[in-house]
């Protein structure tokens, strides 16, 4: 295996989503913790997709063991591109905590995602054929979550 060449992997910035969440519900059941966080609104912008998150079109149905140990996200929403096209997104990934450089001694939540999309044949169908990775963080004033998505070339 010594001569094996490991190929590089390249990412291209695709689009961003700024999301507003109003409700955050979570509880611990007999088997696991469950979250329910629906999107109240959201804006999609960037070079490869522009549009909106359809309000209350779904939620993050997250699971966790203890909230402080991190969360496994599993979101189901609808998006609508600027040209009117409906797009389904299933965002899978993790919400973890890291030290907050702006608040010593505190941590902040950050997101890492690999979303799956379904889109009709046409200008947006590449979303349903392409591996995409995303990062995100929760921001304050106003309370929102900012996601950045990259196409895996």
């Amino acid at each position: 295996m010594a001569e094996l060449q490991i190929p590089g992997i390249e990412l291209e910035y695709a689009f961003s989503i700024s999301m507003n969440f109003a409700e955050r519900i979570d509880f611990v059941g007999p088997r696991r913790g469950k979250g329910y966080v629906p999107p109240a609104s959201g804006t999609i912008y960037g070079p490869l997709l522009q549009g909106r998150v359809v309000p209350y079109s779904g939620a993050d149905f997250a699971i966790f063991k203890e909230l402080s140990q991190g969360i496994k996200a599993n979101t189901h929403y609808m998006l609508q591109a600027e040209d009117g096209t409906w797009i389904y997104i299933n965002n899978r990934g993790y919400l973890n905590r890291s030290p907050d450089p702006d608040n010593p001694g505190k941590t902040k939540l950050y997101f890492r995602m690999t979303p799956l999309f379904e889109a009709p044949a046409g200008p947006h169908e590449w979303l349903a054929r392409t591996m995409i990775v995303g990062t995100g963080e929760r921001l304050a004033n106003p309370d929102r979550s900012q996601f950045t998505y990259y196409r895996v070339k």
């Binding site: 490991i6 992997i9 990412l11 910035y13 961003s16 990775v133 990062t135 950045t148």
Partner: peptide, 17 residues
Amino acid sequence: MAQADVPLIDLDYAFSI
């Protein structure tokens, strides 16, 4: 929106299967 909004993302080779 400006490209300046886009955070850098780092990938580290981890393993092969």
